[in-house]
């Protein structure tokens, strides 16, 4: 009985928590006259389902281009940050040095630095380098956020892999790089995957860099695109919710595939 009550309470609360996402999906999938009403139905009829809002918004706005830009920028940011952070994380985990303390401090400083502040020197640096309105600028800017926490995460994962493994590989004739590449990295795969997901979620969400360093609408990412709906005289809500749903697709997919990693990683508390 107690179990059932708890279960019910948790389901209801989760439902309330997820309501904004549910309402986005509903708004995007029913005809606009149903949701643009003074008393919209909480649970619409199945027979009312339509993809008109998706078709409409894809026709009127370059949502596809935004998504492609976001995918390009996010994937490149993940790749760059992950390579840097994996090497650095391994170094910090295996070799004692002063850099260890510095890496914790760097992470803390990066958590204190407001994006809306750091983007000012970034704008100046990238403009002087001729990189404004270039997706490379966004990749580099995202790396500045990604490297500190990804390095810290990877160090944690490598700490969990016994150094005996490297030593055994060395005895078998590997040099240091080979030991890392053929023995340690395969063992660290789950950690690398989790780290990649975090990096992706963070880069995917970036708004302040994308809005500031890129002004050409053809290079907008999906966050800049979504923000451009706001403030218009007549906001196209079903279209906006359809675009929002599309922008969540990669995140939903990652969630389905990698949820256990996410929970354990987030519990470790290094990402925020």
């Amino acid at each position: 009985m107690r179990e059932l009550r708890l279960s019910l309470a948790a389901v209801v609360l989760t439902g309330i928590i997820l309501f904004p996402i549910y309402w986005m999906l509903v708004t995007a999938s029913v005809p606009s006259h149903i949701v643009l009403s003074r008393s919209p139905p909480l649970i619409p009829q199945w027979s009312d389902m339509t993809f008109a809002a998706y078709a409409g918004v894809l026709g009127r706005r370059p949502v596809g281009t935004w998504l492609v830009n976001s995918v390009v920028v996010a994937c490149a940011s993940v790749a760059l940050s992950l390579v840097i952070a994996t090497l650095a994380g391994y170094s910090l985990s295996r070799f004692r040095s002063r850099a260890q303390e510095a890496s914790g401090l760097t992470l803390l400083v990066s958590k204190m630095l407001p994006g809306s502040l750091i983007v000012i020197p970034f704008y100046i640096m990238f403009a002087n380098a001729g990189l404004v309105n270039n997706r490379l600028a966004l990749v580099i800017a995202n790396t500045s956020v990604g490297v500190p926490f990804a390095t810290w995460m990877m160090k944690g994962f490598f700490d969990g892999i016994p150094p005996d493994m490297d030593a055994a590989a060395r005895i078998d004739g590997c040099n240091r790089m080979q030991a890392l590449w053929y023995v340690v990295l395969p063992a660290a795969k789950p950690g690398i995957a989790a780290c990649a997901v975090y990096l992706f979620i963070v880069a995917w969400a970036d708004f302040v860099f994308a809005r500031t360093l890129v002004t050409d609408p053809r290079l907008w990412t999906v966050t800049t695109g979504l923000a451009s709906f706001v403030g218009e005289h007549n906001v196209d809500w079903p279209g906006l919710m359809a675009a929002g749903t599309l922008s969540m697709l990669p995140v939903f997919i990652l969630f389905l595939l990698l949820e256990p990693f996410l929970v354990s990683g987030l519990s470790a508390g290094s990402v925020k």
């Binding site: 928590i17 996402i21 969400a205 966050t223």
Partner: peptide
């Protein structure tokens, strides 16, 4: 896992959801 979802929603999309 489901309750974790809002954490992964980009801030701009969070804004848009609540504006609606």
């Amino acid at each position: 896992s489901l309750a974790l979802l809002p954490w992964a929603v980009p801030g701009v999309l969070v804004s848009v959801l609540f504006l609606w």
